[in-house]
Structures are given as C-alpha cells and as structure tokens.
Simulated scan of single mutants.
Amino acid sequence: MPICVNIDDIEEGQNVLQTRGGAMSTKMVYGNDCNMMIAVRGPGYHSHPHTHDAEQINYVTSGEVWVFINDRGFLMKAGDLCRIPRNAVHWAWNRSGGDVTLIEVHAPACDPLVRKGAFGLYFEDETPDLSTSVDTVRSGIEVDPMEIEARVLGLSVDELKAELAAANSN
C-alpha cells in the first residue's frame, strides 16, 4: 500500500444501503484515524438513516443533495460544506435529476475493511492500526425519515408518497 495514490488507481465500490432507489458509487481511502470517500450519488439515491461514532464533514463538488441530520434537513449545492456530529442520525437524498458528487471525511475512520475497494494509504514499512475505526449502525434507528422529509420540504406525508410513486413509475 503506497502512502500516495492517484484517484484513478482506486477501485470503485457501491458501499451504502439505500431505502428508495438510486445508486451510489464510491472511492475510499483511509489511514489509521480518518477516511475520505468520493461519492457519486445518482438521481433518486436515498440512503438509509444511520449513525457512526465518527464526526463527518461533507463537501459537495457538483450537483445538489438533501442531507438530513436528526430532525433537520439541508439542501447542499456545489461548494457547500456541512458537519455531521458524532452519533447523529443522518441520511441523504438526491431529489435532483442529475448526479451529485460529495467528498466525505470521517474521523475516526469508518471501518474500511467492510467497504468494497477501500484503499489504505501507508508507507511500505508502516503497520496499519485500525483499532479506533468505527462501525456504521443502520438498525434500531427510531427515526421516520419520510415524516422528517415531508416537514422539511413543506409537504404532507401523502404528498411526498405521491411524489415518490410518480418518480418510481417513470
């Protein structure tokens, strides 16, 4: 594992569970105490609400995406940054008709060994120490994302369901 690599040399992976369609591809690098993912989320992509015992910083390089943190939602566009505190319930939804590209940084690292194509950045004589890496928790989350999304977007739950049904029929 080299300590420096070109992005084109990193395997692409699809690493995140979705609840409502769309696709996401990622390229992930990691060290002992942090990781970085470049994530491309297609139209309709909706991640499952989850937590991790890591702080996360997101930066949108192109496109736009809704990011939900606990009971709040934020429309992020190219050039926007946001921080997701440790253990906050969060998820993302690409409601646009185009791809969105985000750079996500987690500290400590989210466990890279469970992510397809994750690439460690280490000197040849360095021994990786992932003892501080954290798991992503997707079960036991007591959040109704549709209720929060409807409120944030100024819609009723029925209106949001109708919008999703129409989008899925296309």
Score class of each variant (00 low, 15 high):
residue 25 S to L: 13
residue 94 N to W: 00
residue 50 H to E: 14
residue 48 H to F: 04
residue 57 I to D: 00
residue 34 C to E: 06
residue 97 G to A: 10
residue 145 P to H: 02
residue 24 M to T: 09
residue 31 G to S: 11
residue 47 S to T: 11
residue 66 W to P: 04
residue 16 V to S: 14
residue 108 P to M: 03
residue 52 H to Y: 05
residue 39 A to T: 07
residue 144 D to M: 11
residue 46 H to Y: 04
residue 144 D to H: 12
residue 111 D to N: 14
residue 98 G to H: 10
residue 145 P to N: 05
residue 140 G to M: 05
residue 77 K to P: 14
residue 132 T to L: 11
residue 128 P to A: 00
residue 65 V to R: 00
residue 132 T to V: 09
residue 64 E to H: 12
residue 120 G to V: 02
residue 34 C to K: 08
residue 64 E to I: 01
residue 147 E to F: 05
residue 126 E to N: 06
residue 19 T to F: 06
residue 54 A to Q: 01
residue 27 K to Y: 03
residue 95 R to L: 15
residue 27 K to S: 03
residue 102 L to E: 11
residue 128 P to D: 04
residue 81 L to R: 12
residue 90 H to Q: 15
residue 120 G to E: 01
residue 71 D to P: 06
residue 49 P to H: 00
residue 25 S to F: 10
residue 100 V to C: 14
residue 43 P to T: 06
residue 121 L to D: 07
residue 130 L to H: 09
residue 144 D to R: 14
residue 26 T to E: 11
residue 18 Q to N: 08
residue 138 R to A: 14
residue 21 G to S: 05
residue 61 T to F: 15
residue 65 V to P: 01
residue 131 S to N: 06
residue 22 G to I: 06
residue 75 L to S: 03
residue 120 G to L: 01
residue 72 R to Y: 12
residue 79 G to A: 10
residue 115 R to C: 12
residue 135 D to Y: 05
residue 85 P to Y: 01
residue 29 V to I: 15
residue 82 C to E: 05
residue 48 H to R: 13
residue 78 A to K: 15
residue 34 C to T: 07
residue 109 A to K: 02
residue 150 A to G: 09
residue 128 P to G: 05
residue 35 N to W: 01
residue 33 D to L: 12
residue 51 T to Q: 08
residue 127 T to H: 03
residue 79 G to P: 11
residue 17 L to M: 11
residue 62 S to N: 13
residue 16 V to K: 12
residue 149 E to T: 06
residue 55 E to R: 13
residue 57 I to F: 06
residue 24 M to Y: 02
residue 54 A to N: 07
residue 140 G to A: 04
residue 117 G to K: 11
residue 97 G to L: 05
residue 130 L to C: 14
residue 52 H to C: 08
residue 20 R to Q: 06
residue 136 T to H: 08
residue 51 T to K: 14
residue 111 D to E: 04
residue 75 L to Y: 03
residue 56 Q to L: 12
residue 23 A to I: 14
residue 122 Y to S: 07
residue 136 T to L: 15
residue 90 H to G: 07
residue 78 A to N: 08
residue 113 L to G: 05
residue 132 T to S: 12
residue 84 I to P: 06
residue 18 Q to G: 09
residue 149 E to Y: 02
residue 98 G to M: 05
residue 58 N to D: 13
residue 32 N to F: 05
residue 141 I to S: 02
residue 76 M to V: 03
residue 39 A to G: 09
residue 85 P to M: 02
residue 109 A to Y: 01
residue 91 W to N: 01
residue 129 D to Y: 07
residue 107 A to V: 13
residue 102 L to N: 07
residue 127 T to A: 09
residue 20 R to K: 08
residue 111 D to L: 00
residue 134 V to Y: 06
residue 115 R to M: 15
residue 68 F to S: 00
residue 113 L to W: 04
residue 57 I to Q: 07
residue 95 R to E: 13
residue 124 E to S: 15
residue 104 E to H: 11
residue 19 T to M: 12
residue 137 V to M: 13
residue 73 G to A: 03
residue 81 L to C: 13
residue 56 Q to I: 09
residue 100 V to L: 03
residue 83 R to H: 07
residue 36 M to N: 06
residue 147 E to T: 13
residue 47 S to W: 00
residue 67 V to G: 00
residue 65 V to W: 00
residue 103 I to W: 02
residue 47 S to G: 13
residue 62 S to G: 08
residue 93 W to P: 02
